[in-house]
């Protein structure tokens, strides 16, 4: 796994491909990352729940936005990370890229789920319905399915290297398809219900709301990155344990 090929684009790129070096670096980074994440989300929550005014139309329900919008953003951010990492894994055989894609998937899926749930909770008082087959909701739901399919593929194929390559192909095919699916859903939506035009953004957002939103968005993003590092570290350790067990089993069989 730590093999360094001479095909590398740059030396630096492959220097961090070494899992041991990654473990050392990420181990140093984790504590400050957690601190900044908690600080940002804490401040964001305070501004969002206490210090910002209720919306003049939506009242206090507007506060759902401070969780909903960053989640929806990270839902897409997560898939982009997965797609880029998969491409790097397929092209450069970067050993950490596989781990990164695999670790990003459940986090991205969780944020997608969170976006769907908060959207539904927000929709009930605003639109009077838990679920609207709106173009945006529908495409986020489909994104959630893509995440689940990706996770299911990883879980089904037993051999890790095979699973990694198959999952990378799936992530890239999904990345090519997402714009097409998104476009077709928008087209379908306008064809079927041209009357009901819901707009989430509405009037331009007030600065008192923009501040908590930005804080929360930044905090959520850092939360994502921190969790990603934690999951990647866990995955590396899991593979080391697996390798040790296999070695143990092999030596046991000889002796």
């Amino acid at each position: 796994m730590t093999r360094m090929t001479s095909l590398s684009a740059t030396q630096r790129f492959h220097a961090y491909a070494n899992p041991t070096r990654f473990m050392a670096l990420s181990g140093v980074l984790l504590a400050p990352l957690w601190a900044v994440t908690l600080l940002l989300i804490g401040a964001g929550l305070w501004f969002a729940l206490v210090a910002s005014p209720p919306d003049y139309q939506q009242g206090d329900t507007v506060r759902i936005m401070y969780v909903h919008v960053p989640s929806a953003w990270l839902a897409m951010f997560g898939y982009s990370i997965m797609a880029v990492a998969s491409a790097v894994a397929l092209i450069f055989r970067h050993p950490l890229a596989d781990l990164c894609a695999k670790s990003a998937a459940p986090i991205g899926a969780s944020f997608t789920f969170l976006a769907l749930v908060t959207g539904s909770l927000w929709g009930q008082p605003m639109w009077g319905t838990w679920w609207e087959w709106d173009a945006r909701l529908t495409s986020v739901l489909i994104l959630f399915f893509l995440y689940l399919g990706y996770i299911a593929l990883w879980a089904t194929i037993e051999e890790p290297t095979r699973a990694a390559r198959a999952a990378a192909v799936l992530a890239l095919v999904g990345a090519v398809n997402i714009p097409i699916i998104r476009y077709s859903v928008v087209w379908w939506n306008t064809l079927h219900q041209p009357a009901s035009v819901f707009r989430m953004d509405g009037p331009t957002i007030a600065p008192s709301m923009l501040l908590p939103l930005m804080l929360m968005a930044l905090g959520f993003t850092l939360f994502f990155v921190t969790l990603l590092l934690v999951r990647m570290r866990a995955e590396i350790l899991r593979r080391r344990v697996r390798a040790l067990r296999l070695a143990q089993a092999a030596s046991g069989a000889e002796g």
Binding site: F145, L148, A152, L153, T156, G174, I181, S184, V185, W187
Partner: peptide, 24 residues
């Protein structure tokens, strides 16, 4: 093993544009 069901789950999201434009 049991790849058929998994294949359906993976492929169905990609079929959505075909369904939408076909029905359209």
């Amino acid at each position: 093993r049991r790849g058929g069901l998994l294949a359906s789950l993976l492929v169905l999201p990609f079929y959505i544009p075909v369904l939408i434009f076909g029905v359209g």
